[in-house]
Computed example of a mutant assay.
Amino acid sequence: MKSLKKQRRIQIIALAAVALVISTGLIGYAMRDGINFFRAPSQIVAEPPAPTEVFRIGGLVEEGSLLRGQGETVKFSVTDGGATIPVVFTGVLPDLFGENQGMVGTGRYVNGVFEATEILAKHDETYMPKEVLDALKEQGVYKTPGES
């Protein structure tokens, strides 16, 4: 009788392990389109992503690059100090969006131009997204207040 209980326990543990593996696989499959990786302009130049890949780009809007076209189309360049990527966006920009300001955009990199579907701008003078801050520090462009 003891071997029957032991066999039953092993079956339950094996079934639980299989259920865990299947549920983890299903969650990963469901999230594959919802995950947008962050890239700095230098990373995009070094390893250009596929035109079908949706990702986030971040950096500073390059001074003198902001061009407002006909309608809602806006062109500008984003830089991290090491590389510059041209960006095209059709839509309404956030109120705090401007040159020399931090930004994060979501979209695709097609034929050397980042085609943004969403643009986010900083929400006050001191805030900058962590990914953008890290990328700018890595290029030596940004120094924390108090550094010389």
Rank of each mutant, 00 (worst) to 15 (best):
T79G: 03
S65E: 04
V104A: 06
Q70L: 03
G146R: 06
V132N: 02
P48V: 08
A17W: 06
E62I: 05
G105E: 04
I57W: 03
V21C: 12
H123A: 12
I85S: 11
R9T: 04
R56P: 04
K130G: 05
A14K: 11
N111K: 10
G107Y: 01
P145W: 09
A46I: 11
S42N: 09
S42A: 14
F37P: 00
L66N: 07
G146F: 01
G105F: 01
I35Y: 01
L26W: 11
E125V: 14
F55H: 13
V110W: 01
N100D: 15
F37Q: 05
K2N: 15
A135F: 02
E47S: 15
E47R: 15
L96S: 15
G107F: 01
F97W: 14
I119G: 03
T24R: 10
M1T: 15
K143T: 01
L15K: 13
L133E: 15
R108A: 04
A16W: 08
V132G: 03
K2S: 14
A19G: 03
D80V: 04
E115H: 03
T84Q: 11
Q101S: 12
N36W: 11
P48H: 10
S42T: 13
A14N: 13
K122L: 10
K2E: 15
I119E: 04
V113P: 05
T24N: 11
M128H: 10
E53T: 14
I57T: 12
E115A: 03
A83D: 10
E62S: 14
V18K: 05
K75E: 01
L133A: 13
V61W: 01
P51A: 04
V21N: 09
G71Q: 02
A46S: 15
M31P: 00
R9F: 03
F97G: 14
F38R: 04
S42F: 08
E147D: 12
A46V: 12
P145C: 03
M1Y: 05
E47A: 15
L60H: 00
G98I: 09
A40R: 11
V54E: 08
A30N: 02
L93G: 05
V74H: 02
T126A: 11
A19T: 06
R68N: 06
L20M: 14
T24C: 10
V141T: 15
A30R: 07
R8A: 07
V92E: 12
K143S: 03
V87A: 00
Y142I: 07
E118H: 11
E118K: 12
V92L: 09
P145I: 07
T52D: 15
T52V: 10
E63S: 12
S23T: 12
Q101V: 11
G146T: 02
V74L: 02
H123T: 14
R68S: 04
V141Y: 12
E118N: 06
D80T: 08
R9Y: 06
V87Q: 01
R9H: 06
P51C: 03
G82E: 13
I85F: 04
V18T: 10
A121P: 07
A30M: 01
V45F: 05
G107I: 03
T84F: 08
A46T: 13
S148Y: 09
V110H: 06
R32G: 00
H123D: 13
Q11I: 05
V88F: 03
S148Q: 08
A40I: 09
K75W: 00
V45T: 14
V141H: 09
E53F: 08
F38S: 01
I27E: 04
R68L: 02
Y29V: 07
Y29Q: 11
P48K: 10
G98Q: 13
V104L: 11
Y127M: 09
